[in-house]
Design a binder for these strands. Structure first.
Length: 446
RNA sequence: GGCCCCAUCGUCUAACGGCUCAGGACAUCAGGUUCUCAUCCUGAAAAUCCGGGUUCGAAUCCCAGUGGGGUCACCA
């Protein structure tokens, strides 16, 4: 049996795209489900777009999601060793490629072209860029393992793509084929946006080798707002942005795995290990999913609620870069854990534990001072400062004074926290301590 | 415009061509629990794009249409 080998091959432009994370996850799962190898390959062949430190950042972020690779390659280093030049030479010798000395065009400015056959293809140049000499009227096809169907082109619709640039670096088309062959990749999984250039790769594969990896194109993730491919300008597209908003890596990974893949039993919560175990290539979707943040919010809340206090404590401490005392975070967490959907929300919900709040008197209603005076008396007269006694004495005084329970606690809540929406107030009082609570109530009564 | 992909509740999706007046989850709405807010529990509303075929039977197969997406660089 052949060892399964997959790869994730991003270009290091700074941040990891959410779709990239998903592609990496699926590739990882295909390999690991069968105890295969997962390879990370950095495609940095565009000298104009090199970003300092991007490769390291990419590696770090993948590790945070547990997507660990077995082998690592950098294309620019392979370029120095001449792998791509040799492949290009071979293609020219075979008559499947030719040198071209035309001025490079920029499609963004010039629009799409109708000219598929390059004017240099019969000029017999011996230097310049190398382009593929696409044959006329030949059918090329492959079986897509995502869509589970044959996809077919006529080469009359395929253009003479550049393989080697005049700076000696390969384009994606050449590099991807050479590397996937050299690295003995068995399954290529990539985004749907690559589907249209697949016939070029199919031709190169057939010229360079008698074997070809399986190929599959995962759906594009569409924006929930626009229904179009996620765009950097309008949408949050980078993994780093989501982490910064307070989403947990495990939740984000879980959410993204279900955009374009589903198990037969409709299960929704998967750890990475569970996903690898459950992964089935038949579970891929054909239609492009829209990215709706609501479900991610729910899922993130699920993960936060499931988290151990000790783990969550460190995550929140790190998230706020040490801005809050770690032990105190730990004490408040049992009270706030099931009330937040993102780490970032810890601040607005639990901030009053760390800093005396500004209390807006407009929040109060009714005869709140009377309520507070009674509460103050109870607190100060309490012999044993524990939840049971506190609760009992407060309830007794409510009954004794014929207060409305809700009104009483609301007054207390606002005085202590500055908000109408808070964790349970008696438990919060215990965390804050009697002295602090007494001071806060007195301050309002002044 | 050419080429390619796609089409089940608002969203993510399930359903060997028959066990389906289409199931689950999120979101929404209504109840319950509760000192607020959450959590938790109950319930409701909500979909097979439109036509044609094939078949005893179609969400499922086929053909057109319509709609959506992608792509057409010496960027990946």
């Amino acid at each position: 049996m052949v060892q399964i080998r997959t790869r994730f091959a991003p270009s290091p432009t700074g941040f990891l795209h959410i779709g990239g994370l998903r592609t990496a996850l699926y590739s990882y799962a295909i390999a690991k489900h069968s105890n295969g190898d997962f390879i990370l390959r950095v495609e940095d062949t565009d000298q104009k777009r090199i970003v300092e430190g991007a490769t390291l950042a990419l590696q770090n972020i993948l590790k945070r999601f547990g997507l660990v690779w077995d082998e690592f390659y950098i294309q620019s280093e392979r370029q120095k060793k001449g792998f791509y030049k040799r492949a290009a030479d071979k293609l020219v010798q075979q008559g499947h490629a030719f040198y071209c000395q035309c001025k490079p065009k920029n499609a963004k400015e010039e629009g799409f072209s109708k000219q598929l056959r390059d004017s240099c293809r019969n000029k017999k140049f011996t230097s310049g860029a190398v382009k593929i000499k696409v044959p006329d009227n030949v059918a090329v096809s492959y079986f897509d393992f995502v869509h589970q169907k044959e996809i077919l082109w006529n080469t009359n619709d395929v253009y003479d793509a550049t393989l080697l640039k005049s700076d000696g670096f390969p384009t994606y088309h050449l590099a991807v084929v050479v590397d996937d062959l050299d690295m003995k990749i068995t399954h290529i999984l990539r985004g749907h946006d690559w589907l249209p250039s697949t016939p070029i790769h199919l031709l190169i594969f057939s010229y360079l080798s008698n074997r070809r990896p399986e190929i599959g194109h995962a759906t594009d993730i569409l924006s929930g707002e626009t229904g179009k491919k996620l765009s950097k300008r309008r949408d949050s597209v980078f993994v780093e942005e989501f982490l910064k908003e307070g989403y947990l890596p495990e939740a984000l990974l879980n959410f993204v795995m279900l955009l374009g893949w589903a198990p037969k039993d409709n299960r929704e919560i998967f750890s990475l290990e569970e996903f690898v175990e459950a992964f089935d290539i038949k579970g891929f979707q054909d239609a492009n999913p829209k990215f709706f943040i609501e479900k991610l919010d729910w899922m993130n809340g699920e993960y936060i609620r499931k988290s151990k206090v000790s783990n969550l404590k460190s995550q929140i401490f790190d998230f706020f870069e040490g801005g809050y005392d770690k032990d105190l975070i730990g004490k408040t967490l049992p009270l706030v854990k099931e009330r937040i959907k993102k780490l970032s929300e810890f601040e607005s919900l639990a901030g009053f534990f760390f800093e005396r709040p500004k209390v807006d008197l407009k929040l109060f209603s009714g005869d709140y001072k009377k309520h507070l005076k009674v509460a103050l008396g109870v607190l100060q007269g309490l012999n044993s400062f524990d939840l049971e006694s506190l609760n009992r004495k407060l309830m007794d005084s409510i009954k004794g004074n014929k207060f409305k329970t809700g009104d009483f606690f609301m007054a207390l809540r606002i005085a202590i926290t500055g908000s109408r929406f808070t964790p349970p107030i008696n438990e919060s009082i215990l965390v804050l301590g009697r002295d602090e609570v007494v001071k806060r109530i007195k301050k309002v009564l002044k």
